[in-house]
Amino acid sequence: MPDGQQLVLFVLAGWLLNLTPGPDVLYIVTTALRSGARAGVLAGLAIAAGCLVHVVAAAVGLGALLAASAPAFMVLKFAGAAYLVWLGVRILLAKAPPAAPVLEPRQAALPARAGTVFREGFLTNVLNPKVALFFLAFMPQFIPAHAPDKVTAFLLLGLLFTLNSIPVNSGWALAAAWLARRDAVRNAMRWLDRAAALMFIGFGLALAVSDHSPRPSTGG
Rank of each mutant, 00 (worst) to 15 (best):
S213P: 07
A180D: 06
A43C: 12
P97A: 10
T30D: 15
H54Y: 01
L45D: 02
F134E: 10
P167M: 06
V29A: 14
G158I: 02
A132V: 06
A59K: 02
A197P: 07
A81K: 06
L207K: 08
A57T: 02
A206Q: 13
R181Q: 15
L33A: 14
V53C: 01
R90C: 11
R215C: 10
M74Y: 08
W191G: 15
W172T: 00
L160M: 09
W191K: 14
V89P: 04
F161G: 01
S210R: 12
R106W: 13
G4N: 10
A46Q: 05
A70I: 10
A206I: 09
P216I: 11
F122V: 01
T30R: 15
P98K: 10
P71M: 06
L174T: 00
T152N: 12
G80D: 07
L174D: 00
R194W: 15
A100Q: 13
R182Y: 11
S210C: 09
P105N: 09
G171K: 01
A180F: 06
T218L: 15
A72V: 05
V55T: 03
K95S: 14
A48H: 00
L155Q: 04
P216F: 06
I143W: 09
N187M: 14
R119C: 08
P129S: 04
G115S: 00
A114R: 00
N187G: 15
A147G: 07
G121C: 08
G80A: 08
L207N: 08
R215M: 13
G80N: 06
W172S: 01
A81R: 04
L9V: 13
V56C: 02
A109P: 07
H146P: 07
R194F: 14
L12K: 08
Y83A: 06
L198I: 08
A109M: 09
G40Y: 02
V25N: 08
A180I: 02
V75C: 02
K150C: 02
V11W: 12
Q5G: 13
V60L: 02
G36C: 12
L62Y: 09
M189T: 15
H146N: 13
R119P: 03
A114K: 00
S217T: 14
